[in-house]
Amino acid sequence: MAFAAFSSSKPKGFSKPTKSGKVAIALLAPGLAYLGVFFLTPLIALIMVSLQAPDPDGFIGDYVAAFEFNNYFVVVSDYFPQMMRSFGYALAATVLALVISYPLAYFIGVKARPYPLLQKLMLTLVIAPFFISFLLRTLAWKQIFSNESWIVTTLQQLGLLESDQYVVGTPFMVIFGLTYNFIPFMTLPLYTSLERLDTRYLEAGSDLYASPSKVFRKVTIPLSMPGIISGTLLTFIPIAGDYINASGDFLGSSSTAMIGNVIESNYLISNDYPAASALSVLLMGAILILVAGYVKKSGTEDLL
């Protein structure tokens, strides 16, 4: 209104939404185009492939466009254990990563505040493993826990493992590898939110009769919730679809196959593209539902 006093006519740009609407669309266009090309197109292609049927006249691996919804029922009935295993492993590895990362992030973000050099050094150490290819690092773990390694022989001699039991190829090894590979993705968001934690709230908590463990549960954890949420999402989602750690070439075996391994073998070995695509769509849908429920339940709207 104040502008009206200075101009003879009413200002136009503010009152007409159509004009600013055009500007908004123009500004949004690059982003929309990006999403269209790099997200929507492959997604639609994936869904279309997942509904294809085998070509009756072709070779194995030849498919024609169809609406074969049965593909989904087939993959669910064929690979239900692997799906459950994926989410089970992902949950276990995420929880382990959280339990290991939280004290680490707390130390770097809160306790090490008076020593900025130490803080930076420790953060670098958290990221340092990324300088080496994670395939190499995972293979290194395979070697460390290999059947002839001193760790395994010692465990066997101590009676913790039977003489015909090994570590590589077990669920333990796979969860270990998943946890190891994804810990930095948990530590960094936790660090970011703990680094901003105002310790005066902790003092207020202890002043109000809360023991250190109560302060941690009632004040520290809720205040670092944004970091916990993003950390768990950044680990859980990629772990659920991971196909390296659980693969027989790395830390797993056929008994530890996760959904990622099934997708890989359907695509690359048995050339069953519709099944692989259907599994991918199911994985994506399941993760979406889980994450939506998780974010809603943890009530992070206020915090994020």
């Binding site: 207020a204 202890s206 004040v219």
Partner: peptide, 20 residues
């Protein structure tokens, strides 16, 4: 004695009200 065991309460300069 630890702070949470003292019969003392503080009104802090920054108030330190829990934001959550």
């Amino acid at each position: 004695t630890k702070p949470h065991e003292r019969p003392v309460n503080t009104v802090f300069q920054s108030y330190a009200l829990f934001p959550h």
